[in-house]
């Protein structure tokens, strides 16, 4: 069972339907026990960073998510804003602390070009990883005005190019993030989600 965290931010339905089409069991929940009992967790998110942290805090989910990722070592996938929340802080409308599961900071795109970065853009993989297994370096669907600068370059699994290099997929141990929307990204997105779901359903500890 994969738990999709419902904290009032984002398009849970599309993510859940993607899992449904691939025949993975899932639940949509904000309940601590339900989330803790899942074999993996998806943290979606659309909206602003500060609001999202506030909503997680209001539902007492911050420690739950940190526990699941750090102590229990279950797979966690942040999608879009959900990926940004994994990091230390964001400058979106002020300064906000994130979940700090991965060190790094979220900053706004700066430059004389279209913001948000919206549309289909190519992935470039940095290094082999179970999450990327058999996935082709295709285009996926991005919509974002802020992007992540991980402190540790090894945490970057894939990038895209939008007036410079943009972090697209991150991963350390079993903590993962995708800046784009895999549930809206055709075959490539579906494949990546399937790989994540597969990691959740594997019983043994994945070799890093």
């Amino acid at each position: 069972m994969i738990a999709i965290i419902d904290y009032g931010m984002g398009n849970l339905y599309s993510v859940s339907q993607a899992l449904e089409r691939m025949d993975y069991e899932y639940c949509i929940s904000s309940d601590e026990e339900t989330i803790r009992s899942a074999s993996g967790v998806i943290l979606p998110g659309v909206g602003t960073f500060g609001d999202a942290m506030l909503e997680l805090k209001r539902r007492n989910l911050i420690d739950v998510i940190r526990d699941i990722a750090l102590c229990e070592g279950k797979p966690l996938l942040g999608i879009c804003l959900g990926m940004q929340l994994l990091f230390t802080s964001s400058e979106e409308y002020g300064y906000h602390q994130g979940l700090h599961l991965l060190p790094g900071h979220v900053k706004r795109f700066v430059g004389d070009f279209n913001i948000p970065h919206m549309g289909w853009n190519d992935l470039r993989f940095h290094s082999p990883h179970p999450l990327l297994r058999s996935v082709e370096e295709g285009a996926v669907y991005f919509v974002h005005s802020y992007h992540v600068f991980p402190d540790n370059p090894d945490d970057i699994l894939a990038v895209t190019d939008y007036h410079g290099e943009v972090t697209a997929i991150v991963g350390r141990n079993k903590i993962f993030g995708m800046q784009f929307h895999p549930e809206k990204s055709g075959d490539t997105g579906e494949h990546l989600l399937k790989n994540f779901a597969h990691l959740c359903c594997k019983r043994e500890v994945a070799v890093g």
Binding site: Y13, Q17, A18, R21, Y141, S185, G186, D187, E190
Partner: peptide, 11 residues
């Protein structure tokens, strides 16, 4: 829209 969101893999 609800059904489309369940089926489509594109925006």
């Amino acid at each position: 829209v609800r059904q489309a969101a369940g089926q489509l893999r594109i925006p």
